[in-house]
Design a protein around this nucleic acid. Structure first.
Length: 526
DNA sequence: CTGGGGAGGGGGCCC
DNA sequence: AGGGCCCCCTCCCCA
């Protein structure tokens, strides 16, 4: 971490990506801001270049090289007759919804389209459903029938990522562009209007480890005249020459867990599946500050739906059920279903009357150990969770958090009492800010440990923002360590841009602060 | 508003 | 590697 980033605060907006995708999909449906039209056998699909470039390696290379050669003029129409309209429709739906909805009969078309367009995760999923391996493409026709039997009853099926092989999930997550060799697909001709001027994608690219495929850098194209073409040339898949695909590590699929972990942490090698810094930091924090708990290799896996990193071998299926809603564990007594066996087990205690956590000081017994822990604090009279704004103490942390969500506390302390000239507001507000942050910030982040996660509002973001609003960004100007930091990978990839904007912001806030301080001093003199 | 219970979810350890 | 078990945290609901 560079010195300037210490203490910066990142405010994650977990719903942002979903909302963003949803809005983009709306725009696609209404044709708003669409700058690219895909056509397939007469069908037209308005879409967005950026989205297609984000999801498809083919378009990524196409537009990246195009911009390198022509400065970003661009196609307005891209004819993809090689991809059936239904498959193209499904792939577009996937691009804008993260869900692949296809008829089982069209699986192979989608697979082919995904391969042609370089949408590796979809290709992997289709292969998985079809029971094909990357190496067995040629045998797919024979094998496909057997594996598609189970789909035959459903006309339309949503591909549950949970069904995909974990290794594939991880591989997709780590190597979006695939480290697995993509097999030559059967020759398909791909007439394209763009092909008139653009014959082929660059057949070679200088393999560059630093190359960021998501942000094509025009200058890196070896031949500026190598104009890409919107042609998918039969068995020639030029984008396959992407160094990360053409030269997969020979033992890419044999990476040890530790190697995988390194690959995950090494965000520089990753695309849009880069681990959130917080995730990796959490891992580091778990290792460093685990209270003596040695952290073994936990084979972290990235959820393909929410991108969350799930630690622990075998935990991904459990997590995936939170998305699918699948509740395979049913209470035999009352029929209530649960996503997890251990939760069912705890639930069963209600029926059996078992309360395995007795209070040593009273007859109370509890279903959960955590309940007992909370209960014990009542006996001891300790209220370890104190609101540092109003100093009200609570026995339970969640009650403190509930308290924080109330209004009275915020209103009490975030405004400097008039006439209290001896106590300047900025430190007061800052303390309040720290105090309220401390309650829901990871402790490691507040202990000043550089190894801990960056300061994050994991909980009560809105409340925190409200507090910030009370405090006023001006008052934080003097405390650069509290400047907000975006945690998006794009920012992380471009620290210069971030620091520049923050510096600009900081200067502006500082100016405003000086102005306001002047006003306040004038007020107090009155 | 507060105390308490139940449930959902993530992570660690162990088999 | 996968799953069971447990702990922890958080949220929601109710009295």
């Amino acid at each position: 971490m560079s010195p300037g980033e210490d203490g910066l605060i990142g405010i994650p907006f977990p719903e942002h990506s979903n909302e963003l995708l949803s809005h983009l999909n709306d725009q696609r449906r209404t044709g708003l801001l669409c700058d690219l039209t895909l056509t397939s056998r007469g069908a037209r699909y308005p879409t967005h270049r950026s989205v297609m470039a984000a999801v498809s390696l083919y378009f990524r290379r196409l537009f990246g090289a195009e911009e390198g050669g022509e400065g970003g003029g661009g196609f307005s129409v891209c004819q993809l007759d090689c991809v059936s309209p239904d498959a193209l429709d499904a792939l577009l739906e996937f691009a804008y919804t993260a869900t692949l909805t296809i008829p089982s009969s069209g699986m192979r078309d989608v697979l082919r389209g995904a391969q042609l367009l370089g949408i590796q995760c979809v290709a992997d999923a289709c292969r998985d459903i079809l029971g094909e391996t990357g190496e067995a493409e040629g045998e797919a026709e024979q094998q496909g029938g057997r594996h598609t039997e189970r789909k035959a009853d459903g006309g339309v099926e949503k591909l549950s990522r949970r069904k995909t092989d974990r290794k594939k999930v991880r591989r997709v997550g780590l190597h979006h562009a695939s480290s697995s060799p993509i097999n030559p697909v059967s020759p398909v001709s791909h007439p394209s209007p763009a092909s008139d001027s653009l014959r082929s994608l660059p057949s070679t690219r200088p393999p560059s480890p630093e190359q960021d495929e998501l942000r094509p850098q025009p200058g890196q194209n070896g031949d500026p005249r190598a104009i890409p073409g919107a042609v998918l040339n039969g068995d020639h898949l030029p984008w396959l020459h992407d160094p990360r695909i053409a030269q997969p590590p020979p033992a890419a699929d044999k990476l040890s867990e530790d190697d995988d972990m390194e690959a995950i942490v090494d965000g520089a090698t990753m695309g849009n599946t880069t681990l959130p810094p917080s995730a990796t930091d959490r891992g580091a924090a778990a290792t460093v500050g685990g209270g003596g708990r040695k952290r073994k290799s936990q084979t972290p896996q990235q959820c393909p739906v929410c991108q969350k990193i799930i630690h622990g071998a075998g935990k991904l299926p459990r997590h995936m059920r939170t998305h699918t809603g699948e509740k395979p564990f049913q209470c035999s007594a009352c029929g209530v279903r649960f996503t997890r066996n251990d939760k069912l087990k705890i639930h069963m205690r209600k029926h059996t009357g078992e309360r395995p956590y007795p209070c040593p000081h009273c007859p109370a017994r509890f279903l959960h150990s955590y309940d007992l822990k909370n209960h014990l604090s009542l006996h001891s009279g300790t209220r370890p969770f104190e609101c540092l704004l109003c100093h009200k103490a609570f026995a339970r942390e969640d009650h403190l958090q509930r308290h924080r969500k109330g209004h009275s506390c915020l209103e009490l302390r975030t405004r400097r009492p008039r006439g209290d000239a001896g106590r300047r507001e900025p430190p007061d507000a800052l303390e309040a800010f720290q105090a309220h942050s401390s309650g829901f910030l990871p402790r490691s982040a507040l202990d000043g440990g550089g190894s801990g996660p960056s300061l994050m509002f994991d909980v009560e973001r809105e409340r925190s923002l409200a507090l910030l609003a009370h405090i006023g960004p001006q008052r934080l100007a003097a405390y650069p360590e509290f400047f907000l930091r975006g945690l998006r990978e794009s920012d992380a990839e471009d620290p210069g841009r971030r620091s520049e904007s923050l510096a600009t912001q900081r200067d502006r806030w500082r100016d405003e602060t000086e102005e306001e301080n002047g006003e306040e001093e004038a007020e107090e003199e009155e």
